[in-house]
């Protein structure tokens, strides 16, 4: 696999000190994957598999125990304005107004800009998420959906090269979530940023992503599969479910989450399969909806040259 990725994650391992024990607990290991420039990648897995930790390591807020991350050829060693983060709990500064929360980011990103330009730029992104009416309100006076819009506007306004979204719609009701998902598609469509997003919602992932990474259960979690979403864009909530490939992808994802995420770490056969993936240093690539376009289901099979029995 010699594909040139924009973001390259190599053999990431995270170990935490387990409570009351001397040895470290491995949350995940052998996590390798890549993200292409302009690609929208979602990651799905059960709670505790370390998705958020991977995102925090990508953001530079956390350190991996082993392994490296490269972005655009440079190693990721700490937080940077090149990687914007939208946190699950919005992380707006509550003493600043909506506009000030966005200008906070813009001023940090473009310190050479004058005040008028900073405000103009910030307003442009607040407009994109439909918040021009609420610019003077404090976060406490906004609904959850509006707060997350501010957070999205803040991170898009800083124009990061990689945008990291940590389950951004997890705390929102279904209706609001749907609306903001479409706004996110709209903003992403205009900016063509590279996005890495954590979600628990299978439908959300299919709607938004070009590719979905699937993680097995922790501890010793791995990124097992990379599922391509070959449904043409532009997609929207109402039409995407009528695409012939939608349920093929959805069933594959649900099947993985319900049974295979467990089996792959629990059963002997599953572990062997995981060893192959670890040896190949990239997840198994699948395209469940390829039939709908007349292609083969498995794009590239993992080819392993390592004897499975030798790697325990």
């Amino acid at each position: 696999m010699t594909k040139k990725y924009y973001v390259k994650v190599e053999n990431l391992v995270k170990k935490y000190p387990a409570s009351g024990k001397n040895e470290l607990l491995t949350v995940f290991e052998n996590c390798s994957f890549g993200i292409e420039k302009g690609e929208f990648v979602c990651i799905i897995g059960h709670s505790g598999c370390g998705k958020s930790t991977i995102l925090n390591i990508l953001a530079g807020l956390d350190r991996a125990t082993e392994g490296n991350i490269f972005m655009n050829g440079k190693e990721v060693l700490g937080p940077s304005l090149e990687r914007g983060v939208v946190f699950q709990n919005y992380s707006l500064l509550p003493w600043l107004s909506t506009l000030k929360n966005v200008t906070f980011g813009v001023r940090a990103r473009f310190p050479q800009w004058n005040k008028a330009k900073v405000i103009e730029h910030s307003m442009k992104y607040l407009e994109l998420v439909g918040l021009t009416e609420a610019v003077d309100r404090k976060p406490a006076e906004l609904s959850g959906g509006m707060r997350q819009r501010v957070s999205i506007a803040r991170s898009f306004a800083t124009q990061p090269k990689l945008l990291l979204l940590d389950e951004p719609f997890g705390a929102l009701d279904a209706l609001t979530r749907g609306i903001i998902q479409e706004e996110l598609i709209k903003v992403w469509g205009e900016t063509k940023q590279t996005v890495f997003m954590i979600t628990h919602d299978v439908d959300e992932a299919i709607l938004l992503a070009d590719r979905i990474l699937l993680m097995t259960n922790g501890p010793f979690a791995r990124i097992a599969e990379s599922v391509k979403v070959s449904i043409p864009r532009p997609r929207d909530r109402t039409s995407v479910i009528h695409h012939p490939g939608f349920y093929k992808i959805r069933n594959h994802l649900v099947d993985f989450l319900v049974s295979r995420s467990k089996e792959l770490t629990a059963s002997e056969a599953g572990r062997a399969e995981m060893q192959e993936i670890a040896a190949a240093t990239h997840p198994k690539e699948l395209d469940p909806a390829a039939d709908s376009q007349g292609q083969h289901a498995v794009v590239s099979k993992v080819r392993s040259t390592i004897n499975v029995r030798n790697v325990k």
């Binding site: 530079g60 807020l61 937080p79 940077s80 304005l81 983060v85 946190f87 992380s91 906070f104 800083t158």
Partner: peptide, 19 residues
């Protein structure tokens, strides 16, 4: 979370302290 916001925006220690 707020400290992380400052870190991801590459604020200096002084600016993080004051802002």
């Amino acid at each position: 979370d707020w400290i992380n916001v400052a870190r991801t925006h590459e604020l200096s220690d002084m600016r993080t302290a004051f802002t």
